[in-house]
């Protein structure tokens, strides 16, 4: 299967790695693997201590009003531009969507004025210059922009490992026209992994069905939430995959933490594991499973797959 994702202009610098609350607290390996890959791909980036949370969890749980989210987004854009790293690279698709949505809303003069009133108190302004400079990209887009360097960097082949993409809804469905590739058959994770010898799944039944997390739904309507997760797990199991690759910590969290629980309660087997795309790409490029990819933070046992690809045998980098 040849890659279906179109090439995009290579990003080499000016990147601010936008830290995510879920990544930091639940799967810190995703952040470290992303940084590790940026280094391998010669992407110049910073982590900005002035950046703050995107407010996604609070906003989607109806705890924060939208103007708050908007003001925070405007501030985050300002600090990135001030730091000379205007390409916000999101590890989480919610951060991506909420900031991108805010960018559009901030084009409405009334909302921009309102946000700027708040920003004025901290001596900042979201003006045309900031709006014209800031760019919002998912980390996978930045990695895809440099994907031609992957074949030369492979240290561990993943021959015979079958992977399927779980497309994140806040990446694919909020701005379907701005997705790199096909919003209904998102392929960057598999296309990134293709040179390593993985077997790609491509499209499968209910590919676009979501993970079930739904922010507060996970807490408020757990039975519906988990039923959707189970449905998706069954579909993935039908494809006989080894790894489901993710692009959003919300999905990864929902699947990874619930996988075994659902298996037990439903008396079914889903013989595969969940990894972030960055983690698996980094493993193929020789990264350490613990210090770089942070696999110990996973609830599932990923050791068998690590052994299968030889990640436990020797340090290669």
């Amino acid at each position: 299967m040849a890659p279906t994702t179109p090439d995009i202009e290579p990003i080499t610098g000016g990147v601010q790695l936008f830290r995510s609350c879920l990544v930091t607290t639940e799967y810190p390996g995703v952040e470290s693997a992303s940084k590790w890959l940026f280094d391998r791909f010669d992407v110049e980036y910073i982590v900005n201590p002035d950046q703050t949370c995107c407010t996604g969890l609070g906003y989607y749980s109806d705890l924060l009003p939208f103007p708050t989210t908007l003001g925070v987004a405007a501030r985050n854009a300002c600090v990135a531009v001030e730091a000379g790293h205007p390409i916000q690279s999101y590890l989480c698709s919610t951060c991506y969507a909420i900031n991108k949505k805010s960018r559009n809303v901030l084009e409405v003069p009334e909302f921009r004025k309102e946000s700027n009133k708040a920003l004025a108190k901290i001596g900042r302004e979201y003006n045309d210059e900031v709006a014209g400079t800031i760019r919002h990209m998912h980390t996978l887009e930045i990695l895809w922009s440099r994907h031609h360097s992957i074949p030369g960097l492979i240290k561990r082949r993943l021959d015979g490992i079958k992977v399927a993409t779980h497309p994140a809804c806040h990446y694919c469905k909020v701005f379907p026209d701005e997705v790199v590739g096909d919003a209904e058959n998102f392929m960057i994770p598999e296309d990134l992994l293709e040179p390593t010898g993985v077997i790609k799944t491509g499209n499968y039944n209910e590919k676009t069905t979501h993970c079930g997390a739904g922010f507060r739904q996970r807490f408020v309507n757990p039975s519906i939430s988990v039923a959707v997760t189970r449905q998706k797990l069954r579909r993935l199991a039908e494809e006989k995959i080894d790894v489901c690759v993710h692009m959003c910590p919300n999905c990864a969290l929902q699947f990874d933490r619930h996988h075994s629980i659902i298996e037990q309660s439903a008396n079914e087997e889903y013989p595969f594991v969940h990894l972030h795309t960055q983690q698996l790409v980094a493993l193929a490029l020789g990264a350490d499973p613990d210090t770089v990819c942070g696999v110990k933070a996973h609830s599932q046992n990923v050791e068998p797959i690590l052994e299968r690809i030889g990640a436990r045998e020797r340090a290669v980098v």
Partner: peptide, 9 residues
């Protein structure tokens, strides 16, 4: 082009 509708697959 409408992948979820399965035409061609």
């Amino acid at each position: 082009r409408k992948i979820p509708l399965g035409f061609g697959r």
